[in-house]
């Protein structure tokens, strides 16, 4: 199902302290597409994603999934949050964390068990059901968080900087994992990130937002075919798109503080390589 974002606007607070987080924004994510949303701090990218997830109400405009307007968390849409440490339930085992994700769907027990197994296998964590999240490494926990989203067999997966909290190597692995999962589960994916390399590497399309107020400034197609950590980043298309996004994201930042550069650049470790 296509995901239509139509004239969405978000204002926090009201009266004299109101703050425009995201100005009118429209775009459509086609079924099966993988888009990434990038932009500097305060551009409203997370806000936009939370509205797509039905967790925040837009101040104006609306979002439709197919023909159904989103007014709350819709069925078939799963969310992966930035901070696995804060979004998983530490008092539940991995198995329970996953099976509870399907609680609202009222599925038969055997079906839930099958899906939990499948999701854990898909993220390469088969047999970890009895562990508690805090007994695992950060990368493993984030994979649990992704598996939890898969249990509902979503048609749309929304990811809010899912890889921001893990180390560079784990991150590269997870990027490929997410791509593989998209194919395996046949999902539409929208992923917020502040990492430009990552945005270009994973997505079919990069949506670029600017800050103050948050607004859409570019919608860049990426035509890369099959991704590969070794070769893709050397391809001319990748280099070109990366430069394009980089310039767009940096432009507003160049006039403000230079301090945010570190965040907007690609990963230091990758640049060195």
């Amino acid at each position: 199902m296509d995901l239509h974002v139509e004239g969405v606007k978000k204002v926090y607070g009201d009266g004299p302290t109101a703050r425009l987080a995201l100005d009118e924004t429209s775009f459509t994510v086609e079924s099966g597409q993988f888009i990434s949303i990038v932009g500097p701090s305060g551009c409203g990218k997370s806000t936009l994603l939370m509205m797509m997830a039905g967790l925040l109400k837009p101040t104006a405009g609306g979002i439709r999934l197919g023909s159904t307007p989103i007014s709350g968390p819709p069925p078939g849409v799963a969310v992966v949050f930035q901070d696995y440490g804060r979004s998983l339930f530490p008092w539940m085992t991995v198995g329970k964390n996953l099976s509870m994700a399907a609680a609202a769907d009222k599925l038969p027990k055997a079906e839930v068990a099958r899906r939990v197994d499948e999701a854990l296998t898909a993220v390469d964590l088969a047999g970890t059901q009895a562990l508690y999240p805090w007994q695992m490494s950060g990368g493993m926990q984030q994979r649990v968080a992704i598996a939890r989203a898969l249990v509902v067999e979503p048609t749309v997966m929304l990811m809010d900087e899912p890889l921001a909290a893990v180390d560079a190597q784990t991150r590269a692995d997870l990027e490929d994992l997410v791509l593989a999962l998209r194919d395996r589960y046949d999902m539409t994916v929208a992923m917020v990130t502040h990492d430009i390399d990552e945005a270009v590497y994973v997505a079919d399309r990069v949506i670029v937002l600017a800050a103050h107020p948050g607004r859409l400034i570019a919608d860049i197609p990426v035509d890369l075919g099959r991704r590969d950590q070794l070769t893709t980043k050397a391809e001319p298309e990748f280099v070109k798109r990366r430069a394009e996004v980089f310039t767009l994201v940096r432009r507003p930042a160049a006039t403000s503080s230079a301090g945010s550069d570190a965040e907007l650049d690609g990963r230091p470790s990758e640049l060195k390589a």
Binding site: L55, P75, F89
Partner: peptide, 29 residues
Amino acid sequence: TEPLRLDAARSMRWPWWRRQVYVTLPSAL
């Protein structure tokens, strides 16, 4: 209670009572 966990529970379409029992109560324990 960690707001992100409540958001996660909401995104999984848990009704109010289930969020209280499975998220808020264990957090407050």
